[in-house]
Write a protein that binds this DNA or RNA. Structure first.
Length: 675
DNA sequence: TCGCTGGTAAACACTC
DNA sequence: CGAGTGTTTACCAGCG
């Protein structure tokens, strides 16, 4: 309950240090984030670790290729340099990781080309490498994707189970989830079809040549070090038994969607790891062949009695003949490598497609989430994806430390600056205690936000994106007499925000602290005792005057305006409609979207404000705040008063007999105090 | 880097 | 005496 921010920050810091430090793999989220700080990969935070892992694996594959290259150079040229083998490994292993973190493709075409051109790798090795590249990429992405969806689904289910609402709604939700699962399944099947079609693409004719390699199962969950060990063994075995024609490791994707038939819905949904989270298996060449004998159908290039090498489709009665065929027909040569490169490009296209589908799916998720949370509260801190955001929520979720609401709507204001984080749920919800200046900075009209998200705030334990001062003021202004006792303020908090129904001691202290601290809150002795009122002038003084006067701020606003240009149309449309929030739906169910929208809207307003102020007010339909003159102390004074004022009346009218409600919730604070 | 602001914790005094 | 209220201080974090 106490000092969560401190501890969390510390943990973050340590994570980051670890990440940038010695071990180059298994980066924790902190390190991961740091490594990705450049935002080069729009990858999802949730699965970031997995993705990074996958990339590391592939990077290591590349590394192994380099090692092999080195080894063969040494052997063939009989160079005197023996040491590099080891010395080379360490630094090389560390650098690539960071590279892998930033580059979606594991082995870039250029790298591949290099490897190919140097021709020091045996065809077998190259083939293995290529196959691994391709398969790993697809497999990992699919795995990650399904995993995420699964987690989100489960979270949804959880929330709805706790919601305890009418069966009707639950049925509806269930229906939605079914549809959603079907969507998942369809996507999965789509992916398979893509893959199959890819494999059947005849890009080049195959030239008979050297024997190719049977593929061996390679576990996905493999730790990089283990993988490396495996590769060591394999490569050493290779050098030792080069003449045996025996093989090397590669991927077994049979259990994945790549080559297997479509898994059942349940298997897909309920156990996304089943097929992909294999265990580490260190293979010697001998075991490889064994593994294929034991699992004759476990070759990703073999299925239904047909060779699935792209464009081949040769019929092989049994696995042995398939192997023979594979070795004879699909050896590595220029054309097949080119084929692989093309395949890689196709795969990249697929990745793009996958990204789009993910986006669509995310939109669905958001939509469903909206509906599910709208009616009734979710007992748990509402977070669309908190369970998936392993980064912080898992590690930092302390039962008592409510303050870091996973979905802290404070964060949603920032995604604007976080780029197109489509699926990145974390971007939508900055999890954890990260404190942000939110609404006040963005001048989000608190009353309108509260009005729009009223139900949500009431039911979801989401921290309202407003400062205590703003909330207190709002509470006071909503009261008929514009004055409240402390207890009434408390009650307003608990009534309006589920978030403030817990940790009462904390936030109440904060309320008192704010009341005392800010001049804008005036204590007035009254019959009832003491009541608190708001000195608007002081309050407005307190609020950022930046926009009004500061040129740099204006500049920022304008830049942000430009930044939000793509949204401009929609936002302006919504602003034109004024009352009907374009975002109503989103904001009701998903505060993050709502607040994000508000933030953007407000930023746009601010930007427009200046242009308008220069041109004369041309902002129709919007509250006077847009028409404010920069010089006049503040658009702010007008903002809350006029933009919020009227709205607050609405809110008040809707649900405000404050004192009556106060009674309703009178007991709650007490209970919460017990917590 | 620094100053401002906000959030949290805590100590303390006062009142009921 | 305990709870509530109010004040003050300190520390930390985010942000410009």
């Amino acid at each position: 309950m106490m000092q969560e921010s401190g501890t969390e920050t510390k943990s973050n810091g340590s994570a980051i240090q670890n990440g940038s430090g010695g071990s180059n793999h298994l980066l924790e989220c902190g390190g991961l984030r740091e490594g990705r700080s450049n935002g080069e990969t729009p990858a999802v935070d949730i699965g970031a670790a997995d993705l990074a892992h996958a990339q590391q694996q592939q990077q290591q594959a590349l590394q192994v290729a380099r090692q092999l290259l080195l080894q063969q150079q040494q052997q063939q040229q009989v160079s005197g340099l023996k040491s590099p083998k080891r010395n080379d490994k360490q630094p090389a292993l560390q650098v690539p990781v960071s590279v892998a973190m930033m580059t979606p493709q594991v082995i870039t075409p250029q790298q591949m080309q290099q490897i190919l051109q140097q021709q020091v790798l045996s065809p077998q090795q190259l083939q293995v490498l290529l196959q691994q590249q391709q398969a790993l990429m697809l497999q990992q992405q699919l795995q990650e994707f399904y995993k995420k969806q699964q987690e989100q689904l489960q979270l949804q289910l959880l929330q709805q189970q706790h919601a305890g609402k009418q069966p009707k709604e639950q049925q509806q939700v269930a229906t939605q989830q079914l549809a959603f699962q079907q969507q998942l399944l369809q996507m999965q099947q789509l992916q398979q079809q893509h893959l199959l079609s890819l494999q059947r693409q005849g890009l080049l004719t195959i030239q008979p040549g050297q024997p190719a390699l049977p593929l061996q199962p390679l576990a996905q969950g493999m730790i990089p070090t283990e993988l490396q060990q495996l590769w060591k063994e394999v490569t050493s075995a290779h050098t030792a038994e080069e003449t045996t024609g025996n093989n090397h490791s590669s991927l077994d994707l049979t259990t994945t969607c790549v080559s297997s038939s479509a898994p059942s819905k349940t298997s897909l949904i309920m156990n996304p790891h089943a097929s992909t989270n294999g265990q580490l298996s260190v293979h010697t060449p001998k075991r490889e062949s064994l593994s294929h004998e034991e699992h004759p159908h476990s070759h990703p290039l073999y299925g239904h009695g047909v060779c699935k090498w792209p464009g081949c489709e040769a019929v092989c009665e049994d696995f042995q003949s398939f192997l023979k065929h594979l070795n004879s027909e699909h050896a590595l040569d220029d054309r097949s490598t080119a084929q692989c490169r093309v395949q890689m490009q196709v795969v990249q296209q697929l990745e793009l497609q996958l990204a789009k589908d993910k986006e669509r799916l995310q939109a669905m998720m958001t939509h469903l989430h909206v509906k599910s949370t709208e009616p009734k509260a979710a007992p748990q801190p509402l977070n669309l994806v908190s369970s998936v955001t392993l980064s912080k929520s898992a590690s930092e979720a302390s039962p008592q430390s409510l303050p870091h609401t996973p979905t802290t709507p404070t964060a949603p204001l920032t995604p604007v600056t976080q780029g197109p984080s489509v699926i990145t749920t974390t971007s939508m919800h900055t999890v954890g205690p990260i404190r942000r200046r939110y609404s006040d900075k963005y001048n989000v009209p608190i009353s309108s936000d509260i009005a729009q998200n009223q139900e949500f705030y009431k039911n979801a334990e989401v921290r309202p994106p407003f400062t205590y001062a703003s909330l207190i003021r709002q509470a006071i202004l909503e009261s008929p007499e514009k004055q409240l006792t402390l207890n009434e303020i408390y009650n307003w908090f608990t009534r309006m925000f589920a978030y403030f129904r817990r940790n009462a001691a904390t936030w109440k202290n904060a309320v008192r602290h704010n009341l005392s601290l800010h001049k804008c809150f005036v204590r007035v002795e009254n019959v009832k005792g003491a009541v608190w009122t708001v000195d608007e002038v002081e309050f407005q003084k307190r609020r950022p005057q930046k926009i009004s006067g500061n040129p740099s701020l204006i500049k920022n606003m304008q830049s942000s305006h430009a930044y939000c240009t793509p949204l401009n149309a929609a936002l302006q449309a919504s602003m034109a409609e004024n009352s009907i929030p374009l975002y109503t739906t989103a904001s009701m169910g998903n505060p993050t979207l709502g607040n994000l929208a508000s933030a953007i809207r407000e930023e746009l307003n601010g930007a427009m404000e200046h242009t308008n102020s220069n041109e004369s007010d041309s902002s129709p339909g919007r509250s006077p705040m847009q028409a404010v003159h920069p010089v006049h102390v503040k658009e702010e004074p007008l903002d809350p008063e006029e933009a919020e004022g009227p709205l607050s009346l609405v809110t008040t009218a809707n649900h405000s007999p404050d004192f009556d409600h106060d009674r309703d919730y009178e007991d709650e604070p007490v209970n919460e105090d017990m917590e």
